[in-house]
Every structure is written in C-alpha cells, then in structure tokens.
Amino acid sequence: MVNLTVDGKNISAPKGTMLLEAIRGAGISIPTLCAHEAVSRSGACRLCVVEIKKGNRTRIVTSCLYGVEDGLVVNTKSDRVLNVRRLVMELLLARCPESDVLQKLAKELGVEPQSRFVADTDKGKCILCRSCVRVCEEVVGVSAIGLFARGPHKTVGTPYNEKSDVCIGCGACVYVCPTGHIEMTSTEDKRKIWGRTFKMQACTKCGKFFAPVDQLKFISKKTGTPLEELKICTECR
C-alpha cells in the first residue's frame, strides 16, 4: 500500500492506483468530464486537477493520470486548483451554452458563466473529451470516428465528414458521451448516426428490432459466431 496525505487526511491506496480513485475512495469529491471507466484516459478536460507537493516543489497535475506516491501531499481545494477548475468550467459553458450537464456541474462548483465570453453557437454540446473516439478505437475496435484539425478548429467526426464505411452503428460513442452531444435517431427498423442510416435486425424469435445488422455482422466476423445465432435478441437467447 502507498501512503499519502489528501487535504490533511492520511490515506492509503494500492500501488498503481490513480490519484482520482484514491481521493474519491477517501470520500473527497473530484469533478471530471473525460475520465470514463470504459476508455483509457487522456487528461483533456483538466477538471480533475489537484495540487501536489513533493519536497519543496508544488505543481498542478491531473489526478486521473497521476499515480499515488508515498509521502505525496495533495491539496484538492487550493486557490490554484479552484482557479483552473473555475476557468475550465467558464470556458466550457461558453463553448457549449446549451449543455444541461455542464450547467448542472457549474452550479455544483459554484461557477457562473463568464459574461465577457461570446457564447459559441456552432459547437453543439461537444467538449472534445474524446471518450467517443477512444471507445470506438479501444472497445469497439473500428475507429470510425476521429479528431480532426487543431486548436479552435478541432472537431470529432468521420473522415472528411463522409459516411463511414467502417461504422457499425453500435452507438457506443453515444453511450460514453458525457454531454449527450452525439445524435442517434431511431425508428423501429432503422437507426441513424454519423450521417449513415443502419438497417436494424429483427429478432428471429420475438420479431423485435434490437441491433444494427452491420454490428451483428462485425461481431460474427470478430468472434467466429455464425450470424444466424446472433440474430436472436438478448432477451430471447
């Protein structure tokens, strides 16, 4: 076990634990938007910053990526930490003024929108946390979406914003998106996502439409399970 101090409290955590988990485990809350359990961490949102002290040196680190160390002194509420968190929230509120998730979190953190910033109208609710990109690459394994351009022009999407040949319409990106930015619309036998319409498979037993045909084909290919077996919904299996 590794022993460290957080906000004056002595805590211990197994070696290899990230500060975020260790601190939350001690009952201290830390906000995050981009750390999702399904995907690897990027440290993009910077909300989970904490101030650490090693020897005489203090610095700001993202707790989601910094592993516990013996003797580390962590401050989760220093002025520097709160200043970064406040700024991140103000910047995100100005980027995605419509996001109810951000508004709620801002309220919890006591952050008001910065009136000097002109709110964006073209970014939707996307905060570029990249959870969708990571789940598509790391969990689904198709990399149908990615990040494009740099700096203020950065966006998430399919290559050249064209219909993706590799997308299987699984909707994992929708599931991990923290703000509900990614649009997926469904009718009974069709699902529309990233500009493509997917045909849904009807369960061969109960007749209920339950998954995109492309997704079942992909799973069949990947696992070697005959496609026919996959055409039965989870409830009837």
Binding site: G43, A44, L87, L92, I127, L128, R130, R150, K154
Partner: peptide, 9 residues
C-alpha cells in the same frame, strides 16, 4: 493542438 480545454479555449 486542441487537446486540453485551458489551452484550446
């Protein structure tokens, strides 16, 4: 690069 919020925004 646009990865993290403080720098990009």
């Amino acid at each position: 690069c646009g990865k993290c919020v403080p720098c990009r925004e």
